[in-house]
Amino acid sequence: MVYFIFITFFCLVGGLAVVACNPSPYFGAAGLVLSSVAACTVVVEFGGSFVSLILFLIYLGGMLVVFAYSVALASDPFPEGIWDMSVGAYFTGYLVFLVGFLAVFGGDSFFYNFGVIGSEASGFNVVRGDFEGVSLLYGLGGAGLVICGWGLLLTLFVVLELTRGMSRGGLRVI
């Protein structure tokens, strides 16, 4: 189990390093998909299976699909992967940064504290804690739900207003 967690941590950080090292957007979107799948696994390992499901459905299923679609806007004739010179240099630099970060701040406690310390990570539970917590949005945290709904409605107006092409033609070829 510990090695499995280590692999997911590695995938998460590695995927974000691919996003950060400025490749073509195709590879960036692929790296973000990899790291968000790893993030779902990490959250499950920490005992938040419902929150992980939300992350999987909304973030990976909804938003990243839209992102992968939008990457088509930035169609490079010669996409740069991490094997190219500048991107590879950045990638190596970030890996060196990560290893240094690990060496300075990891310390002795790195393998000592390793393991799953979540509330319901071990054993079988009928009622999930995070499920109860999310249901607070329908009760005491109702104001949060109202604000979230208002934010989404506002985003609809904002997006429509930003992409409205007044005199420039609504359906121009982008």
Binding site: V51, I54, G129
Partner: peptide
């Protein structure tokens, strides 16, 4: 998400949402 399961405060579960 890991904060809420590590500190075992389930009322924080609305935060990630």
């Amino acid at each position: 998400a890991t904060l809420l399961s590590t500190t075992q405060t389930t009322s924080l579960a609305a935060t990630p949402i």
